[in-house]
Amino acid sequence: MVIDRRVPLSAALFAMAALAFAAALPVPPDRAALVLRLGQPVRLIDPAATGPAARASAGLAWHMPLVERVVWLDRRAQTTTTQGLGPHSAAIATRDGTALAIDGFAVWRVTDPVRFYQALGTPADADEAMRAMLMTVLRRQVAQSDLPAVLALVRAGGDAALRAGLDREIARYGATVVDLGLSRVTWPDGAPIDGAIATMTARADADAAAITAEGHRAASLIRADAEARAGQIYAASFGKDPEFYDFYRAMQSYDAAFVQKGNHATLVLSPDNTYLRQFRGK
């Protein structure tokens, strides 16, 4: 049997390539590689630890295949939220007893990959633990504050105390809080939200009544003002000769009262009537 001498050569090359492929550890700047030798962390390749130079310090590293295992830790900022656990997460009572439905989110980053991995695993695994810690901190903070303080907290979009509270919790696991916000603050479903809406409705009804009354008042004022001005005009004109005005106005009044279209009255006149003065021939 003839054996091509390139066969062992290519087999060797292939084996070397496979080995190189298995041993190569390209580390991107957004992840850290924690190398475990038989379960024991032996070294950490962490470009992000170099700060802004992360891009430059990333690149090819090596590890021993089979013996060493690599755990990847995301060095980008992770986001954990208490939102979306169920239909709605549980209500938190403030110090003055008002229940509020509050959900928050924390943006956090791994600072010490080895400690973090030993405590909580990879960032993806740690989400549940992070969520629990965030919930605890939120509850504690809200329970210490009264309603106006919580609303002030919402206005500020989370505050330093809240951030520091969570930071204290997760610092011991090798992570830090970048940002913390409240993504949902409202009245809990059921009676509280119904009550709030009922209050709003009552307030709106009162507003509507007040607006109607105010409209009437304004209209009355406008009319009264016009009447006053009209009276002023009449007085200025008719006041010149009240006696003639009385006569003139009486004539107008007769016209208005008796000379209407379709109006028929029977007038009984005494022969002494002024109108009939000439009638008598006196």
Binding site: F105, G157, S183
Partner: peptide
């Protein structure tokens, strides 16, 4: 570069942050 290195889940973070920002303004 900053976007790729910044947030693990930009969509989720953006959604939550947008909600928080609007709530703080409305409040």
């Amino acid at each position: 570069q900053a976007h790729a290195l910044g947030l693990a889940d930009p969509d989720l973070t953006l959604r939550l942050a947008a909600d928080a920002a609007m709530r703080s303004v409305v409040a």
